[in-house]
Simulated scan of single mutants.
Amino acid sequence: MENMQELRHLQVMGSDLPYPNSEGALLPNLLTLLGVVITEEILQRIPNLKKLGFQEELAPDAVEHLCCFNQVSNSYRLESLKCVIVNPTSHQVVPSLLPGGSIFPSGLKKLTLSGLSLAWENMGIIACIWNLEVLKLRCYAFRGPVWQTCQRGFKNLRVLLIEDMDLEYWKGSSRPFLPDLQRLTVSHCYKLKEILGSLKMS
């Protein structure tokens, strides 16, 4: 694979990339990498990556931060990120698996999360991704009956998808929140009873 220097798009389902044998960039022209189990060493060797999709398998009693998010924090060119937990918990909220601080690249525009079973309080970290335009939450990415939206976050969010959640009340502020939102899709959220607050659609 190290000889494929002109490769721009790569999808490898459920596997690791081979560990590079030589120094320098592994795939210097690669822009899209999907389906892999990532390591910090591999990401350091793909300097121009713009789109990354990876999957993780959690231990049944997982309580530690997902190290994969630390690994992508230095991918400065990354614009699109997708994280899928292949064995999501179906009955409980997982303690915070997102480390604090600026764990996402500042230029990130699209984020898709699936199966993390995070408490809604963790959404404050995502709300601080100032360039984020598209957020897709699938298959119990977050769990819990109430989401209190951060008033100062999501300044540039245009597209929001909420799918397969146990959310009951979505609370905003009296002021319009999500000011640039243009498309909202809520799908298979059968427990949702009410959206409270002033939701502004552009």
Score class of each variant (00 low, 15 high):
Met123Ser: 15
Gly124Asn: 15
Ile125Glu: 05
Ile125Arg: 13
Ile126Ala: 03
Ile126Asp: 05
Ala127Cys: 14
Ala127Glu: 13
Ala127Arg: 15
Cys128Ala: 13
Cys128Thr: 08
Trp130Glu: 08
Leu132Asn: 05
Leu132Tyr: 04
Glu133Cys: 09
Leu135Asn: 03
Leu135Tyr: 05
Lys136Met: 12
Leu137Trp: 13
Arg138Met: 03
Tyr140Met: 10
Ala141Glu: 15
Arg143His: 06
Pro145Trp: 07
Pro145Lys: 09
Val146Glu: 10
Val146Cys: 03
Gln148Trp: 05
Gln148Asn: 11
Gln148Ala: 07
Thr149Gly: 00
Thr149Leu: 02
Thr149Ser: 00
Thr149Asp: 00
Cys150Tyr: 12
Gly153Trp: 02
Phe154Asn: 02
Phe154Arg: 04
Phe154Gly: 06
Lys155Cys: 10
Lys155Ser: 14
Asn156His: 04
Asn156Val: 00
Leu157Ile: 07
Glu163Phe: 06
Asp164Asn: 03
Met165Leu: 11
Asp166Val: 07
Glu168Lys: 15
Lys171His: 08
Gly172Ile: 03
Ser173Tyr: 09
Ser174Arg: 07
Arg175Lys: 08
Arg175Ala: 11
Pro176Phe: 08
Pro176Lys: 13
Phe177Gly: 06
Pro179Ala: 05
Asp180Val: 02
Arg183Pro: 01
Arg183Lys: 12
Val186Tyr: 09
His188Trp: 08
Cys189Leu: 14
Cys189Asp: 15
Tyr190Phe: 15
Lys191Glu: 15
Ile195Pro: 00
